[in-house]
Design a protein around this nucleic acid. Sequence first.
DNA 1: TTGATATATGTCATAATATAACATATCAAC
DNA 2: GTTGATATGTTATATTATGACATATATCAA
Lengths: 165, 165
Amino acid sequence: MPLNSDPIGFAHHDHATCVTDAVASVEARCIAAGLQFTPVRKRVLEILLEEHRALGAYEILDRLRDEGLGSQPPVAYRALDFLTKHDFVHKIERLNAFIACAHPHEVHTPAFLICRDCNAVAEAETNLTQGRLAKIASATGFIIERAILEAEGLCPNCIPKSEPA
Amino acid sequence: MPLNSDPIGFAHHDHATCVTDAVASVEARCIAAGLQFTPVRKRVLEILLEEHRALGAYEILDRLRDEGLGSQPPVAYRALDFLTKHDFVHKIERLNAFIACAHPHEVHTPAFLICRDCNAVAEAETNLTQGRLAKIASATGFIIERAILEAEGLCPNCIPKSEPA
DNA sequence: TTGATATATGTCATAATATAACATATCAAC
DNA sequence: GTTGATATGTTATATTATGACATATATCAA
């Protein structure tokens, strides 16, 4: 699995401040909501923000272990459960991996563009309340509580490799 | 995990003929495309059609084993790989489970309504070529090859249980 | 402040899901 | 009928995730 160097929308960016900004934003939301933003939870979020790519639970656990923050799978999974439950982090089901939310300030229904070559993931927004699916659901009597859209394909960086024309 | 008795769009139906019809349709498409619709592949599809719900790979394997069609995980996974690759079966990533395609006659981008209470799954259709995501992808330069939308919520049968009002 | 309750962590064990690797068999095309 | 590609059988192991229970920390009411 080749690594990717620019997974945010597949474009480079300077993230000197984006990690600290995002952490501060999440911290504020936890305080406002009466949630405990504990050291492990905070560190897991930081790791995901620093990487800006989807990481498996065991990759995260390895990092935590190196830092003496926990060595057993439940430590990582519990932190990830908390973070995903509150939409600070999203799970990419297609990859069994986790990625920090790119829009942590708003309630949203995320859509992911997942590169099948380099596994880079970009997060976009969808609008679930309009569109065909919402109509079908309401006609059926199904209540949608949360939804994710995962699109697989080729990112701009990998298209040249796969279509060398 | 409670079972569900009516997972197709959450409504009962008589499926006396739907299994054989669907199998015949897939068989015809395999012949047309030069694909080998082998006994194991056919039986896996039948099992999924008979159940009309999402089954885990190991549930399917248990059935195959009972019938003497294979006893090791790769047997089930290979058949499922074939069936999902050609869209005769879809994987529900949220559940790590597989379900027979409800619209095997058309090329499509499936959307699933997954009940969090009874795990029933309904398959709807989306239109990927229009809508916000397609615009974002083309603006980004990402080529979408396949996409899945998984919505989680409450099906009509489980709403009364969860909202006893 | 203390005691009661809920929430979070540490740890061991194991479950559930999925694939690598390689030998054998069957198919498809020439 | 030989050959190359495709499919299956089997062993072993990798990867992902959770159950269970003891300990610790936070929260809040009295």
